[in-house]
């Protein structure tokens, strides 16, 4: 188990290194000089050159890369070109919204998908199964921003249970903050829950057809006991894979939903930074997201080994 973990950690480190190089090089290649952008089209070339020197943009690329990496390791992400404030602080502020939102949506999606997937698998071919499959088909097909607007219409404008947008802030109390994240989280969770339900169902149906389920039934287990004790854990590998992918997506891919609900999250920050050529912010946020994705994958790999003893002794 330790060796398996060490090998995974090694590959985690290599992935991070490669990802940071790719991100840095990609932003080197894209057109647009941040200094020129900041000063506007009428700026004098000397002024631009002075600003480039001030921002450190005139130094050699490898040096800037090393500075960037070294800074990040110490929690210094640089200074935003447009806002002139430390990027680390901006990201931390936005993460206070985006991370809880992603976790909230993931929790909702899992809480819906597990029972629904199990229920449908247990009653394969029944009206329940057909119903669950139909609803999840819809859930995958409906764009989440449209569903979000629909919810705003019903729950915010008509029923007035929730506010139509904005974030209350953690200072206003945990419940108030969570309440303002509820509609966005539901909108984000719906398609994810639909996908996860379908994966759960098909993974369970696969394992329910295995010989060891028949063996378990021959020992005297009821259908439900065989499912809970033997099928569920065996079906977890594909489900964990999807959960890992979904978390990464929820963290990074909430741009549209954040816009619909006017949430000051990471997605909106990247969106604004790209349009303002604030490359250092883009770089840092993208690196952070990549870091999150890779760490989540690492966690999923460790979870595989926890679920499946055969992986622990893997070569």
């Amino acid at each position: 188990m330790l060796r398996y973990g060490a090998r995974r950690a090694m590959s985690l480190f290599v992935s991070l290194l490669v990802a940071s190089l790719v991100i840095f090089l990609a932003l080197e290649i894209v057109p647009g000089d941040p200094a020129a952008y900041m000063l506007g089209i009428n700026a004098e070339p000397d002024t631009v050159a002075a600003l480039r020197a001030e921002l450190g943009l005139n130094r050699a690329a490898p040096l800037r890369y090393l500075d960037w990496i070294g800074g990040m390791l110490q929690g210094d992400f640089g200074i935003s070109y447009t806002y002139r404030t430390p990027v680390a602080g901006m990201i931390a502020e936005r993460l206070k919204v985006s991370l809880p939102l992603a976790l909230y949506a993931l929790a909702l999606s899992t809480l819906i998908a597990f029972p629904a997937g199990i229920w449908a698998a247990q009653r394969r071919g029944s009206a329940v199964d057909v119903g669950v499959m139909g609803v999840t088909q819809l859930g995958v097909a409906i764009p989440n921003f449209w569903f979000a607007m629909l919810m705003v219409l019903v729950f915010a404008i008509n029923l007035r249970w929730f506010s139509a947008g904005g974030f209350a802030g953690w200072d206003s109390g945990f419940l108030a903050a969570m309440k303002s994240l509820t509609l966005p989280a539901v909108a984000l969770a719906l398609p994810q829950a639909s996908i996860l339900t379908r994966v759960m169902r098909s993974a369970l149906l696969d394992t329910l057809g295995e010989d060891y389920i028949r063996t378990a039934r021959a020992k005297g287990l009821t259908r439900g006991q065989a499912l809970r004790r033997h099928a569920l854990r065996n079906a977890m590998i594909p489900v964990l894979t999807i959960i890992g992918l979904q978390f990464s997506f929820l963290l990074a891919g909430a741009i549209i939903i954040e816009n619909v609900f006017f949430l000051p999250g990471l997605g909106r920050l990247v969106f604004q930074a790209i349009s303002a050529r604030d490359l250092i912010v883009v770089e840092s946020v993208v690196m952070l997201l990549v870091f999150a994705v890779i760490v989540v994958n690492f966690a999923v790999d460790l979870a595989y080994a926890w679920v499946d003893p055969r992986l622990r002794g893997e070569r």
Partner: peptide, 20 residues
Amino acid sequence: LRGQAVGMVFQEPMSALNPL
């Protein structure tokens, strides 16, 4: 009754046991 009064052994020893 199953497992108590009557036990059953299957063909494939590879797949008849829960691997986990």
